[in-house]
């Protein structure tokens, strides 16, 4: 096991997959000469050349569509969004073209393309640069959604996403790029899509979450340990495909659940999961499931307000206490 940052893990995944398959190329704003806005693509231009590591103009709709067309014609593009906040300009091409192409052509045009970049809030970037975007993508049949929270997951899941034959929105955490963790040395370390990971084990309550919120959940779980409450922290890792078996397993074990997500509550990922749990494990529940989300407001700039808006470990602990009727 090597210890590396989330950023380095993503970089390794890209490097290995580009070396493995000459049809894989990376395109996006500042990915080549600048080494990536967040340095995820550092060194790739030197290694693979300008045909495969491509600085695009600031034209999200345009280069996303270009990637989709290239995938139709048989390449395997990795399209980087500097952040998913900018990908709203491109979402027509993701939903209307990429996610539907295979279906509306009755299987004639598979769409092996990855759209990747950071999602969610960083620090004081205010409303237009601080939003969790996964729900927009997971809503559409035909689009897979992956949200790694650790360096190992980042590497193994990115490799799986690039090898997958469907469009994948691969959503990273801006505040995770410097986060360090152990990553297996294996060149062929691939984590299959659709497998959740129990990041912390306990029997009293299930905290289910995805993406960088796993760290908030783990923080809450550690605090709760001190109070004698043992929580399962289940990291979904991929939202679509969704490891419902793992969700049911933890809920059936603890009978109480909290869903934690970085995005807004209305029709969020948590809304979907809660609906499914009540349909499929109603008799196992001892309490209503509570969701912890961002405050239902655009992200404010002022530091104190931003802190209030973001879901925190304390919010999670409050929710856990409610489902435990404490």
């Amino acid at each position: 096991m090597a210890v590396m940052t989330y950023r380095e893990a993503l970089n390794e995944a890209l490097r290995e997959e580009m070396a493995r398959d000459p049809d894989v190329f990376l395109m996006g704003e500042e990915v080549a000469e600048y080494d990536g806005a967040y340095k995820v693509s550092k060194g790739l231009l030197a290694e693979f050349g300008e045909q495969r590591v491509v600085d695009s103009p600031i034209s999200e709709l345009g280069f996303t569509g270009l990637g989709v067309g290239a995938a139709m014609a048989g390449l395997r593009p990795v399209i980087e969004f500097m952040t998913f906040n900018f990908a709203f300009l491109a979402i027509d091409q993701v939903i209307n073209s990429a996610a539907k192409m295979y279906y509306m052509s009755e299987g004639q045009f598979p769409m092996p393309i990855v759209f990747r970049g950071p999602t969610g809030a960083a620090l004081q970037l205010s409303a237009q640069h601080s939003q969790a975007c996964e729900t927009y993508y997971s809503h559409a049949p035909g689009c897979k959604v992956v949200t790694p929270g650790t360096p190992a997951d980042a590497k193994g899941l990115l490799k799986a996403a690039i090898r997958d034959n469907d469009p994948v929105a691969f959503m990273e955490g801006e505040l995770l790029y410097n986060f360090k963790g152990e990553v297996p040395d294996d060149d062929d370390f691939v984590i299959p899509l659709g497998v959740a990971d129990l990041k912390h084990e306990g029997g009293d309550v299930s905290i289910i979450t995805h993406g960088k919120m796993i760290h908030v959940a783990l923080q809450a779980a550690q605090k709760l340990e001190k109070e004698g409450i043992h929580a399962d922290v289940l990291d979904l890792r991929t939202i679509r495909p969704l490891d419902m078996d793992a969700i049911l397993e933890t809920v059936q074990k603890t009978n109480r659940a909290v869903y934690l997500e970085e995005g807004w509550p209305y029709a969020g990922t948590g809304a979907q999961i809660v609906s499914m749990i009540q349909e499929e494990a109603f008799d196992h529940l001892d309490a209503p499931i509570i969701r912890v989300t961002q405050a239902d407001v655009p992200m404010p700039y002022a530091k104190n307000l931003e802190m209030l808006a973001k879901p925190s470990a304390n919010h999670v602990i409050e929710a856990v206490n409610r489902v435990l009727y404490r």
Binding site: F25, Q51, L61, G62, F63, T64, G65, L66, G67, V68, G69, A70, A71, M72, A73, G74, L75, P77, D92, Q93, N96, S97, M101, M104, S105, F109
Partner: peptide, 24 residues
């Protein structure tokens, strides 16, 4: 024959991507 696309102008970037593949 690469479709039949229903969003006005949406196919133009796609065809550019096909051009990209040809050059690639």
């Amino acid at each position: 024959f690469m479709g039949g696309h229903g969003i006005v102008g949406g196919q133009v970037p796609l065809a550019t991507g096909i051009g990209w593949k040809i050059k690639y």
